[in-house]
Simulated assay, not measured.
Amino acid sequence: MNAPFSIRASSLSELFDCPARWETKNVLGRRLPIGGAGRMGTAIHEATTLHDYAVMNETTVSLDDCDTVLVDAIWNPNEDVDWTDTDQQTAETTGRALIRKYISDIAGTQHYIGVEVRAEALTLADIGITLTGTIDRIYQHDNGQLGIGDIKTGKTACSADGTVKTAGHGVQMGVYTLLAEHALNEQLLAPARIYGLTTGKTAKGQHAGVGEIPDPMDALLGSDDRHGLLHHAGQILKNGLFYGNPKSTLCSAKFCPAHQTCPFRK
């Protein structure tokens, strides 16, 4: 019997969007430098993690401490970064503002019981997949139920009225919920939460909000009369069905290492 394919939870959505791009990056190991906006998002994640972990453990952390983590992640990245979409100074200024907005508008309303939880690999032998990943946040709802949360940054992450863009995140949130249940050995019945932070360059364009995805595992696991997305992912991997999707919004040289030679673009 062939060994299960190992797949990171954060990459599953890309497998469905364009299997050819997923194969190029995750099987063939061809990578592009991360964009400046992506690096800013990573820096914000690292800084807010410092804050939330300290609060969860009832220890003290200052905004200066969070800023130090942010600045180091932007100016001393541990990966190649293409800063053409935003420069480092703008990323730092925007990141500092969004850290404060996250802490004031979101973090204080959440009861986290887990921050950056590295889940044990979960093997689903029947479909030939091993899931891996780190769970951004596990929160406790007011009713006592547990759910997962994930910070998302971007130009459209949250609108001015506080509405968070949840579309497109369901698959990833479902996998994180599955991994969290495996890690905690209990059900997570609360909705998955997206903590949206809009990366506007000025205060007027910087928004924060919380969006929810009820029953995030439904589409993944399927039901008695239909296969779930994990089954379809297993079929793609098992049979090497790495077809391209030229209509993907990420079909460009900026996001795909195989773009220049991809036969599916013809």
Rank of each mutant, 00 (worst) to 15 (best):
L179P: 06
A121T: 11
D136Q: 07
V171D: 06
T84N: 10
D218E: 14
A47K: 03
A97Q: 08
V115D: 06
P191K: 05
S159D: 14
T90H: 07
I113G: 09
A20W: 04
V171T: 14
L197K: 00
D52S: 02
I135V: 11
N76S: 15
L197Q: 08
E186H: 12
Y176A: 08
P246Y: 09
F255D: 15
E79G: 07
H169A: 12
F255V: 08
H51C: 11
G168F: 04
G196K: 01
I34R: 10
T130I: 02
H259L: 03
G149Y: 06
T42P: 00
G240H: 09
L230K: 00
V210A: 04
H51D: 07
D72R: 10
P191I: 10
I34C: 02
A180K: 01
T249V: 09
A167W: 07
T60V: 12
D224K: 14
L250Q: 13
E116R: 09
L221I: 13
E14M: 13
I44A: 02
C158M: 05
K101F: 08
C262E: 08
G196L: 07
F242E: 04
Y195S: 04
R31D: 11
G154F: 04
P214I: 09
A73C: 14
H169M: 12
A37T: 14
Y53I: 03
T24F: 04
E120R: 15
L15H: 05
T49D: 13
T261M: 09
R193L: 11
L124S: 05
P33L: 08
S10L: 08
Y243T: 14
T68V: 13
F242G: 05
A208W: 00
C262D: 08
N2H: 13
H227R: 13
